[in-house]
């Protein structure tokens, strides 16, 4: 019996908890992609960079706050700096919309042109990020590292396996829940949110009923910038900030959005968790788990790891391919906001 509890704790510690926090980060990222897709109708390749851009400003503001001696008690100072990052990112994406995308919108360009333009934006943002903060790893986490750590857990329970919960994991999940709740309240209850859904659903009809497209687009960018900054900061707090990893996050984020059904916010969240759980479950070494649950002669010799962690991107890709082959509209049929 105790070995079974040990096995569960093991899974919780190395699989469920990390996947929950990674999934929340992906979900927030995918929400941004989905939002832009449903309002502007293109896949925004600059989204990973938008996340990195927002995070960069959060880091800069964190350093400034730290130099003033400000701290947030046990929580990371970066949370106090979030508004700075959000505002900077909002200003930047609104400027890119005004300077880049607006023209193509007015000329009703095809979505491939939008995608190429977003690649250009990605280049510029990537350059700015490397120029300002450099391509190296940055740690900006401070405050209490653990809610409770492995030793404390073992003392409480007397188990051999330990469960450690890091502050960043809890912050990630809690923040994601709050943000998603506010977003859904906004989309379903407020006038602006409803007009956004109407616009995404049927552009012409929305225009006829007097919805201002410029306003809808502006709000979509603002929300996306906020989501991206929060997602990027949470990811950076949880792991570390490195501009290149944010570029690589693009694939799991796109996969999450498509798996859930592009343009569908519920789908984006579900997709984020599907991708996160499969990535971690497939790259998890099950040897210890089997040692607890199986009789001795059945326990495998190796790590019992299905895939090396270097291939975690392959997981999101394979899920993406399967969904494209089986149900191209995604799990929750896409294109409803």
């Amino acid at each position: 019996m105790e070995s079974l509890i040990n096995a569960v704790v093991l899974l919780l510690n190395f699989l469920v908890v990390p996947a929950l926090s990674y999934g929340s980060q992906l979900a927030l990222g995918a929400l941004g992609v989905t939002l832009i897709y449903s309002v502007l109708r293109f896949s925004n390749f600059a989204h990973g960079e938008t996340m990195a851009f927002g995070t960069m400003f959060v880091i800069l503001a964190t350093w400034l706050l730290q130099s003033w001696g400000v701290s947030f008690g046990p929580l990371p100072t970066a949370l106090l700096a979030l508004p700075v990052g959000c505002i900077a990112t909002i200003l930047f994406v609104l400027a890119t919309d005004r300077l880049v995308y607006k023209h193509y919108r007015e000329h009703k360009a095809t979505n491939v042109i939008f995608m190429i333009a977003s690649v250009g934006v990605m280049f510029v943002m990537n350059g700015i990020i490397r120029f300002v903060i450099g391509p190296e790893d940055q740690q900006f986490f401070d405050g209490e590292r653990f809610i409770f750590n492995a030793r404390q857990f073992k003392e409480w329970t007397g188990l051999t396996e330990a469960l450690a919960i890091r502050t960043t994991q809890v912050i990630t999940v809690v923040t994601a829940i709050i943000v998603v709740a506010i977003l859904f309240w906004f989309l379903n209850r407020t006038r602006t949110g409803k007009s956004m859904r109407a616009y995404s659903d049927n552009e012409d009809l929305a225009l006829l009923s007097g919805i201002d497209p410029a306003h809808v687009v502006r709000i979509a960018w603002i929300i996306t910038a906020i989501l991206a900054t929060i997602a990027g900061t949470l990811y950076g707090l949880d792991k570390s900030f490195k501009p290149f990893t944010y570029l690589q996050l693009l694939l799991p984020i796109f996969a999450a959005a498509i798996v859930g059904g592009v343009g569908n916010p519920v789908g984006a969240i579900a997709g984020g968790f599907v991708i996160a759980f499969s990535e971690i479950a497939l790259t998890f070494a099950y040897r210890k788990f089997f040692a607890y649950t199986l009789p001795d002669f059945l326990v495998p010799d190796g790590l019992a790891q299905l895939l090396s962690t270097d291939y975690k991107f392959a997981v999101s890709f394979v899920i993406l391919v399967v969904v494209l082959l089986v149900k191209p509209t995604g799990l929750f049929s896409g294109k409803t906001l």
């Binding site: 897709y37 896949s43 979505n111 690589q248 996969a255 890709f317 993406l320 494209l324």
Partner: peptide, 13 residues
């Protein structure tokens, strides 16, 4: 969009 994302994925792999 799907071709773009699929090619992005295969190149990463």
């Amino acid at each position: 969009d799907y071709l773009a994302i699929a090619t992005l994925g295969i190149s990463e792999i």
